[in-house]
């Protein structure tokens, strides 16, 4: 059974090279972010593999959970980078109008 885990882990690690290719060759920046996100998910799974192979799953599960969590925060932050911010000052003489920012779904709700 342990041999199976080792082989499966190696297969999982090998498939990561596809994402590495996309990180290097991706035409846009967001392509690279997506690929890094996929690598993060695979690392989460790979940590569980390593824990099982070492026989200390109780330890490595915590690592995996924390890694997945920070991966989620990181990908959200990277996606947020492409949205514009809310202004906090306006010119005084400008007529009052509804601020419509670039996102279609970013509106003021109560």
């Amino acid at each position: 059974m342990e041999t199976f885990f080792i082989i499966a882990g190696i297969v999982l690690f090998t498939t990561m090279w596809a994402e590495i290719y996309r990180v290097m060759a991706g035409p846009t920046a967001i392509d690279r972010i997506v690929a890094v996100n996929v690598i993060g998910t695979k690392t989460t799974v790979l940590l569980v593999f390593i824990g099982t192979i070492f026989g200390r799953v109780d330890m490595f599960v915590d690592f995996a959970l924390a890694y997945g969590l920070l991966n989620f925060v990181g990908s959200l932050a990277a996606s947020r980078y492409f949205h514009r911010c809310l202004p906090y000052t306006t010119p005084i003489d400008a007529p009052e109008k509804r601020k419509k920012t670039s996102g279609g779904n970013r509106t003021e709700i109560s």
């Binding site: 809310l86 906090y88 000052t89 306006t90 010119p91 005084i92 509106t107 003021e108």
Partner: peptide
Amino acid sequence: TIPPGHQPVQYDPRKKIAYDPII
């Protein structure tokens, strides 16, 4: 940080600006 000729935007504190409902 308010530049000359500008005024701060007064947001209604009871309302919040949602970035995206799903998220």
